[in-house]
């Protein structure tokens, strides 16, 4: 009986967790010659954002942000998407792990 209860509990959590609540906004960031464009993006605090990162360089890049708790590899001449938010107000830095000298950016949550 306990096993059945825990299965139902997990099924409930999984089911509930898959409901998208906040509306999603799409934002695209480009990587060109080891830089992010735009490098600064403002979003409202109650918004979930689908961030699509297009890598226009021939070499791979990794979008890395401890502030956002996100890491994703973008192959050369390819793109990848991640979801962030809703986030509390503040600044959230990100960088390109393979070219951190130039690939720097931030998300400003207002």
């Amino acid at each position: 009986m306990k096993s059945v209860s825990i299965y139902f509990f997990f099924t409930f959590i999984i089911g509930m967790s898959q409901h998208t609540s906040a509306a999603t906004t799409d934002i695209t960031i480009k990587i060109e010659k080891g830089h992010f464009f735009p490098s600064s993006i403002a979003i409202p605090s109650d918004t979930k954002v689908k961030l699509t990162i297009e890598n226009h360089d021939d070499t791979p890049e990794e979008f890395d942000s401890h502030d956002l708790n996100r890491e994703v590899l973008i192959k050369g001449n390819s793109k990848a998407s991640i979801y962030i938010g809703p986030l509390p107000k503040g600044r959230y830095a990100f960088e390109g792990e393979f070219s951190p000298e130039t690939a720097q950016g931030e998300i400003i949550v207002k």
Binding site: I13, Q18, K48, R70, I82, Y83, I84, G85
Partner: peptide, 11 residues
């Protein structure tokens, strides 16, 4: 099984 951050819980 789910895209990172798409839902309240990643699975």
């Amino acid at each position: 099984l789910t895209e990172t951050g798409k839902y309240p819980v990643d699975l």
